[in-house]
Simulated scan of single mutants.
Amino acid sequence: MTELPAYTRSQLALRNGQDKPQIWVAYQGLIYDVTASRLWHNGKHYEHWAGQDLTEELSGAPHTEEVFGRFTVIGVLK
């Protein structure tokens, strides 16, 4: 198994759908690429913004962490 690249919070923040074309979010130390999701168009999903660690915010979401299984893990958060 290949080791995943590590990204800082600053690097993650640039993948917000505005500064760079990629749309990434982090959850429990893993970074997910949500670029292809229509629900993350322009880097926003309801009251959540891409380029951030959403671990603390998930408790208020109408879905469980299983939703992250739909997306590719592309790195780990340093």
Score class of each variant (00 low, 15 high):
M1H: 13
M1Y: 11
T2A: 09
T2E: 14
T2N: 08
L4T: 09
P5L: 09
A6S: 15
Y7M: 11
Y7A: 09
T8Y: 14
T8G: 11
R9I: 14
R9P: 09
S10H: 15
S10V: 13
Q11L: 14
Q11K: 15
A13K: 11
A13N: 14
A13S: 15
R15C: 15
R15E: 11
N16H: 14
N16T: 14
N16D: 15
N16L: 12
K20D: 13
K20E: 15
P21N: 12
P21G: 11
Q22H: 15
Q22I: 08
I23G: 02
I23C: 06
I23P: 01
W24G: 03
W24H: 08
V25H: 03
V25D: 00
V25R: 02
V25P: 00
A26F: 10
A26Q: 10
Y27R: 03
Y27K: 05
Q28C: 05
G29H: 07
L30V: 06
L30H: 13
L30A: 07
L30W: 10
Y32I: 03
Y32A: 02
Y32R: 03
D33I: 10
D33H: 09
T35F: 07
A36R: 06
A36C: 01
A36S: 11
S37C: 12
S37T: 06
S37D: 04
S37Q: 05
L39T: 05
W40F: 05
H41Y: 08
H41G: 00
N42Q: 15
N42I: 08
N42K: 14
G43R: 03
G43A: 07
G43V: 07
G43L: 04
G43I: 05
K44T: 09
K44R: 12
H45G: 08
H45F: 07
H45L: 03
H45N: 06
Y46W: 14
E47H: 08
H48S: 08
H48D: 06
H48P: 03
W49D: 02
A50K: 00
G51R: 02
G51L: 00
Q52D: 04
L54A: 07
L54G: 00
T55S: 15
E56W: 02
E57K: 09
E57G: 00
E57Y: 08
L58G: 01
L58H: 01
L58V: 11
G60K: 05
A61E: 04
A61H: 03
H63G: 02
T64P: 00
E65F: 09
E65D: 13
E65H: 07
E66K: 12
E66C: 04
F68Q: 05
F68K: 00
G69I: 00
G69K: 10
G69V: 02
R70T: 07
R70S: 10
R70M: 06
R70F: 07
I74T: 04
I74S: 01
G75N: 05
G75A: 06
G75K: 00
L77N: 04
K78Q: 14
K78H: 09
